[in-house]
Design a protein around this nucleic acid. Structure first.
Lengths: 241, 241
DNA sequence: ATTAACACGTGAAAC
DNA sequence: TGTTTCACGTGTTAA
């Protein structure tokens, strides 16, 4: 918009030989390579010379030096940015030829995932409540987890405590091929809450969340049918006293 | 190097009025704003016209259209890249005015940290060995953790099992203001290994690692002095049988 | 007045 | 072929 690309003058004044032998293009006949110098000659003859054109060589020198500095600084800036992009290329699952935009898209996605995972792993509420509860959440909230291909689930189970609850839980996770990343378990007044962060295999889809949910539900029902009365009585007695 | 910026011809042919009123600079006297058009006039008169200059207007049109497409595509590319950079700006602890290079530097650092944290949280070896062990590692390996300001430690304690080991451990972590992100505990043959991923407060320095190490050491010694003989005998008996 | 950062238009090369 | 991506030099603007 507000640009002119009228810098051939400076290219000429700089005596930058490299640009003189740039192959002509766009049907301009040879020796169009010298055209950039001709611009200057032409305008010099077309417009009357003013005194500054003779006496301001120091001005020209300074402008020239400034332009050179500018050029080099800009190159350094580009290199700085690109070096960081290269580092990111090594940090992500992508080859060195993925273009900048796609690379940055991957980076955005990855940072979001990692943020989410660590925050979910960190924030656990383990104080058991008085009501039975089962919650199973997916970390990736539905969209495909491109990170390392694994879905992360957060499962919370709050129920009466019993001695073989943990082994049963472990059995469920094993049968569903879920790997436990973090488990936090607390018991209070005969009740327990177990919060699990589990990673699914790559072959799992988001639907696995339902298998886990159902398994935990049956576990809870099993728990209630067999041991409920005994524990309940003990808890009630404790509350009465 | 291999560039000429000799595109005034196309600016002129395109009739792009915007560039005509660009303020002159570098001491070129007015009406230098028209200089870019003069380049074309000048070169047209200096070099003999060939037939193509009259008959190839369709060529010119095509080249012009191509140039316009190119220009717009490049603009779209820039916008795509910059939009991703903006997304990253919102994802990281930095304002919207941090420059590209610094932003990307932060991104590199953040991705490295998060990778390291999640991998350390994931990779735990909990099978207890027959020899007593204490290891305390720092996640950030010495450099400042710019992530959310917290240092992450990984502590592993392998020793004889005893009933009040966990409460003692919890007491230690509480007194050192360390928050447990993940704990994995396994017992086998009367021995136990506890692997803890703990996060230090922001006011902790990397030196806190020594306090934790010493506390665990004293815990292990306490364990050995009181309960060792009894457990050892039981274990030895088991091994003999 | 320097310096640094940005968007732009362009030529070249990949595909 | 045309489409896409890149590096470059430049003009401009802000601290």
């Amino acid at each position: 918009m507000q640009q002119m690309e009228n810098s051939e003058l400076y290219q000429f004044l700089a005596g930058n030989g490299a640009s003189f032998f740039t192959p002509a293009s766009y049907g301009m006949p040879p020796p169009s390579a010298a055209a950039s110098t001709m611009h200057s000659f032409c305008s010099s003859s077309y417009y009357p010379l003013d005194s500054s054109e003779i006496t301001d060589t120091p001005h020209q020198d300074r402008a020239l030096a400034a332009l050179k500095n500018h050029k080099e600084a800009e190159k350094r800036r580009r290199e700085r940015i690109n070096s960081h992009l290269d580092k990111l290329r090594t940090l992500l699952p992508c080859n060195s030829k993925t273009d900048k935009a796609s690379l940055l898209a991957k980076v955005v996605q990855r940072v979001r995932e990692l943020k989410q995972q660590t925050s979910q792993i960190t924030e656990l509420e383990t104080i058991p409540s008085e009501t039975d509860e089962i919650t199973v959440l997916s970390t990736s909230s539905g969209d495909y987890d491109g990170g390392d291909g694994r879905l992360i689930f957060k499962a919370s189970l709050c129920c009466e405590d019993r001695s073989d609850l943990i082994p049963d839980l472990i059995e469920i996770l094993k049968s569903l091929h879920l790997k436990t990343l973090k488990a936090e378990m607390a018991t209070l007044g005969g009740r327990t809450r177990n919060v699990l962060i589990v990673a699914a295999d790559k072959d799992h889809s988001i639907e696995s969340i339902h298998f886990l949910q159902n398994a935990l539900k049956s576990l809870l029902e099993r728990s209630n049918s067999s041991e409920r009365s005994k524990r309940r009585r003990a808890l009630d007695r404790k509350l009465i006293v």
